[in-house]
Design a protein around this nucleic acid. Structure first.
Lengths: 242, 242
DNA sequence: CGGCCCGTTGACTTACATCAAGATGAGTGG
DNA sequence: CCACTCATCTTGATGTAAGTCAACGGGCCG
């Protein structure tokens, strides 16, 4: 269902990609980026609803998101699903799996999505010559860890309204880094997916959105959100929003 | 408050340590272990209640636990604490910090504890010659990630009794690997710490312990636990206990 | 012995889940 | 273009798991 897109010499590459200051090449010199580029030999298109990878699969690559968005989720033995994150352009999918050779989670496209494929063996081969790449991989892994910790804190100590406020503020921050409006955006995931991610039911999420709207913190219509009072939301969330 | 113990040539080392098949040297050949040993130049003694490291500190080492146990916790801006894990002998503390140069969490000794110090620069220096070390670091990082994910699932989808059952089964598993009884052990942490870890209050934890005891799943007196019906606990937890 | 954590247990409250009944909107086919 | 279905979302009524508040008991340490 995924469509492979081999990269020809004249395809657009990392060095000309708008996202190269967010994605894997963060912090690399122009020269390092051009050396790194050869690691990325192809792209994949994943239609909405399809999987980029599933838990247990051999993990021989990590994926930089070019356009679109993904959710990652875990399933336990009894079939329960826990959404562990939403990934936006410039962010990297498959980091947890890459560390141990097979995927730990299941990544599904929330909309038609395109990712750049960086094969692990290529990375290892090239990393010897690009110290900043090793460093960047460590940094990304650490970020992933922090995200996971943040989620633990959110699920462990925050109340539902705080979790949802933190979620909105976090989305706003990440979207604004991508150059989108930090106050007005479209949620690519359903109420159910948000709820699952935050350890709430879809009804609770819906009710909270309605309440936030009533309190003039946001305006919301289906998946279009407008944050009317970001400071108040930030305050509600308890300042740090991962 | 920490007491440094420099290692002299005749100190006991990794190659003679009982834990070397659990700790950092897992999967290394005898030769690799003896090369790895030189990374560990000292140990630290941390008295009960004292910190091994605190969030924000420069992270220039990782720590293999020799004897004792630790808890790791995060504090958010508003001072809320979330316990993120308990570490037993043979397990490694400070992995998350090591990836990005400063500690993300706060590690506190639950009892008088002794750890082996592996400095990051030493590791990086030696890693070039010991491929199994690089691999082992990746594996440990991945394990850490899995643990965190497991906790997310636990907090997100399990009910209180399931969380506590999973906690007991998990402790039992880890202790039996260390050669202790898998059915009878002493909890080194308070009800409050368990509760915080599992996203519950100390009263709920206490009540659940009492209920488990009433249902003959366990016997418990203060911090001494005896698991009477491990299969039932496993079943209650939902099979996989990280 | 007395003080102090720590753990237990009970009575009460509440935040969130569950159950259930419409609305709203996107997609499809006549 | 309208009528249909199906997904998703909203809102209300009710239930319940777990939190809160409070009193008490048991170990442990000076």
């Amino acid at each position: 269902m995924q469509k492979r897109i081999p990269l020809t010499p004249d395809s657009s590459r990392c060095s000309t990609c708008m996202l190269n200051n967010l994605c894997l090449p963060v912090g690399m010199s122009t020269i390092d980026i051009s050396r790194f580029e050869e690691v990325v030999q192809e792209r994949l298109r994943i239609p909405k609803g399809e999987s980029l990878f599933e838990a247990g699969e051999r993990a021989d690559a990590i994926f930089g998101i070019r356009v679109g968005s993904l959710k990652t989720q875990l399933e336990d033995a009894s079939g329960h699903v826990q959404v562990t994150g939403f990934l936006l352009p410039g962010e990297i999918a498959g980091l947890d799996g890459f560390l141990e050779g097979h995927q730990l989670s299941h990544a599904v496209a929330l909309e038609d999505t395109e990712v750049c494929v960086a094969r692990v063996d290529e990375i290892d081969r090239v990393a010897a010559h690009i110290p900043s790449l090793q460093q960047q991989l460590r940094r990304l892994t650490s970020t992933e860890m922090k995200r996971s910790h943040q989620l633990v804190v959110s699920l462990g100590v925050l109340r539902s309204e705080q979790r949802l406020a933190a979620f909105l503020v976090n989305m706003s921050q990440r979207l604004s880094i991508l150059g989108y409006s930090s106050s007005e955006f479209i949620l690519r995931m359903s109420r159910e997916e948000i709820g699952n991610y935050l350890g709430l039911t879809l009804e609770t999420v819906s009710r909270l959105f309605s309440r936030f709207a009533r309190e003039n913190l946001i305006r919301i219509h289906q998946r279009e959100v407008k944050l009317l009072d970001l400071p108040a939301l930030r305050d509600l969330a308890g300042t740090d929003c991962g």
